[in-house]
Amino acid sequence: MNKLAKKYLRPSQIPTKACHGCGIGMIENWLLQAIDELGLKQEDVIFGTGIGCVGRQTFATWGGDNFGATHGRALAIATGLKLAQPDKKYLIVVGDGDAASIGTSHLIHAARRNLGVTVICEDNMGYESTGGQFSPTTPAGYVTNSSPYGMVEPPFDPCDVVKAAGATFVAETTATQWHQTVKIVKKALANDGFSFIHVRFPCNENFGAYALGTRDTLKNLEWIYEHTQGRKTDGSESDFVWETGIKHDASNSRPEFSRIMRDMNARVQADLAQKAAKKAAT
């Protein structure tokens, strides 16, 4: 076990049940690195997940307090939790199904409210734990087990969605960008507001096998790398490119949701006290 896992995770819960070559563990290790470099302790961070590959493989690995939400609702739960525990850092680690499909309304409204959480959307471009169906982030044309003739629906970019909704920090990386991801997660956690990081990673067993035709981890990572660079290893252009990096940084530019609520309460209570004092005086 590496040092970071020993420091932050639960030895009894790792390794997880993730498939061989899955990127989820690797990305979690990068999150730990960012947490460690910020000097955060187990009790400073509440770790929330959802359902599916990312939910199941990361739930209860974190050594501090954990919650695994119903499908799509991690942010709805976090919204209530943040009111009760405003001083904690929240790491909401969910998949593309949770963030970009079943729970998109909560994602949008958490961004609108500037809820003080950091969402890591670990995107394996489909519903892989149910056997590899396409999701709203599966690239157009790719074959999955529910798009045998190619994905005919256009995908969308969740970064655009949260940015439009008012997120104060938005970034995209891939599983081939270790140092960049760590730097970005550190910036996201420093934002007292809604931070969203979209991280693409390869699934070997389903997306790799059916969309890319290989279960080879390195080949699947190479595919991710090519689409991060926009250029294949043979020098030709890839069929599309993901623009990675920080897409929007308005960190700490507007008040965080639970702060807004507490400020309103202070105002209401001050008004009440003033009225009571006036009444007592007359």
Binding site: Q42, F59, G63, D65, N66, G68, A84, K88
Partner: peptide
């Protein structure tokens, strides 16, 4: 959640 007890809450 939030008192550092290490509690786990889930759908499972």
């Amino acid at each position: 959640i939030g008192h550092g007890t290490g509690v786990c809450v889930s759908a499972y």
